[in-house]
Design a protein around this nucleic acid. Structure first.
Length: 280
DNA sequence: CACGAAAACCGTCAGCGGTT
DNA sequence: AACCGCTGACGGTTTTCGTG
């Protein structure tokens, strides 16, 4: 049922409301209803073919957005692996570039300088300061990485070279993310050599060396799986976000159509009165 | 306030279509 | 064929809300 409606919506983008072309819109709606009614005629194979072509929410919403002014479009994702990192153009040649779970890019220059850039922001504004300390409390071999989390949830995951992992400190990890955001507490991360079991969401960067032993192969398989799960996790989040946006868009359209329907009914009644005056 | 139901959210898996 | 992204389905967890 859901896909049925979705496909209808996709195949029959309703015209621009701002044009005020009500006749066109009503015709479109009528056409939609008609096609819905004739669906029973389609043989099962064809129907399955149609229903299986599931346009993404981004496509659907962009269709709607192009018709309805004021509805923001979902930007087309640039293929992240295209190699050109946005907003990192004038820095020293980095030795490593990593991407966080929230899409930010972290570049570690040869001098140890670290830059974070947001793909969604413009130019230098996307860069965030990041401080590193190696002295004091941290356990041997650990590097404290602190930065001001920009995202609301404040959770970040890093890729770090040299078979190291980034682990969020327990204090900030356990505290509710919104508290950290509102109190200004900076989440603290440690770069460590991986222990036996990786915490959820923490990935180990693959060293580009060759993998020989069964243990290494198993680790590689595990790493690939973790990477796939992480990507799918993010994809699921994004998919749900689009779906919610899509549903909101539909709801707003329902509200608009109800108002217009009401106006049309009133207009029809007025015309009826004009065309058939009382004979009394 | 305690409790249970409902709603919302999340991670994972499976399957599909598109791309290389 | 392998890989990848998208999304429905499922089950678990968390949050919200109504009731006693």
């Amino acid at each position: 049922m859901w896909w049925h409606q979705r496909n209808l919506c996709f195949r029959h983008p309703i015209e621009d409301y701002s044009s005020g072309d009500l006749e066109k819109e009503v015709a479109t709606i009528a056409e939609t209803d008609e096609s819905a009614g004739s669906e029973g005629v389609i043989d099962s194979h064809k129907r399955r073919e149609i229903l299986s072509r599931r346009p993404s929410y981004r496509k659907i919403l962009n269709e709607l957005s192009s018709d309805v002014p004021g509805v923001p479009k979902i930007e087309e994702e640039k293929s992240g692996e295209e190699g050109t990192l946005p907003h990192i153009t004038t820095m020293a040649v980095p030795t490593s570039i990593y991407q966080t779970s929230t899409g930010q890019y972290i570049a570690i220059a040869q001098g140890g300088a670290i830059q974070i850039s947001n793909p969604g922001s413009d130019g230098v504004q996307g860069l965030q300061a990041l401080t590193m300390t190696n002295s004091g409390a941290p356990p041997p071999g650990a590097t404290i990485v602190q930065y001001a989390a920009q995202s609301a949830d404040g959770t970040q995951q890093f890729f770090v070279p040299g078979s190291q992992v980034v682990v969020q400190d327990e204090e900030t990890e356990l505290a509710p993310s919104h508290m950290a955001a509102t109190t200004g507490d900076m989440p603290t991360y440690q770069i460590r050599a991986p222990t036996t079991a990786l915490p959820q969401g923490v990935m180990m960067a693959a060293s580009p060396g060759s993998l020989h032993s069964p243990q290494q192969l198993a680790e590689e398989a595990t790493r690939k799986r973790e990477l796939r799960l992480m990507k799918n996790r993010e994809a699921a989040k994004e998919c749900r976000r689009r779906k919610k946006e899509y549903v909101k868009c539909l709801e707003s359209r329902v509200a608009v159509l109800e108002v217009q329907n009401k106006k049309l009914i009133e207009e029809l009644e007025t015309l009826k009165d004009i065309c058939s005056p009382k004979t009394d």
